[in-house]
Simulated assay, not measured.
Amino acid sequence: MADFIGEVLFEAVLAMVACLVLAAGAAVFLAGWRISPLVAGGSLGGFLLLAGYGAREVFRPAGPVRRGRLTTVSVTAFVLVALVLYGASCDCV
């Protein structure tokens, strides 16, 4: 029973965090769009490239672990994208 309650609470917290990340990302993008659409689009493209590199690092074949700042930031960006995609599929939108 405790396992079930733990899973339900974890799912609720994950959904809440995903919804907050999705809302914050949309708000930042819209604020940037009002200032300059070119900068907002370029920033989004750069972030997606960074997240793509993070996905490559997460799913690459086993080998020596890379421990650099770029790798850490890119894996974090990939996790944020995964949370946004999760948040887009939940009932908070």
Rank of each mutant, 00 (worst) to 15 (best):
L9Y: 11
G46M: 12
G32E: 04
G45S: 13
A27Y: 04
P37S: 02
L83Y: 08
I35V: 11
F59I: 04
A55S: 04
T76Y: 03
A24S: 07
G46P: 02
F10A: 15
P37C: 00
A27T: 03
A88W: 15
A82L: 15
L30T: 01
V28C: 02
A40G: 00
G32D: 02
G42V: 10
V73R: 08
T72H: 09
A62G: 09
E57I: 11
A31S: 06
L30K: 06
G42M: 13
R60E: 10
A55K: 05
D3S: 06
A55Y: 06
R56G: 07
G45D: 02
E7A: 14
C19Y: 06
A18F: 01
A15Y: 03
M1L: 04
L80D: 01
F10G: 07
A18L: 03
D3K: 13
G68P: 00
V17A: 12
A15K: 12
A40Y: 01
A51H: 07
L22C: 02
L49C: 04
G68V: 05
C92R: 15
A24V: 10
L80N: 10
F78T: 09
V93Q: 07
A27L: 10
E11Q: 11
F59P: 07
P61G: 10
I35W: 03
L49R: 12
S74R: 04
G54Y: 08
V79S: 04
E11W: 10
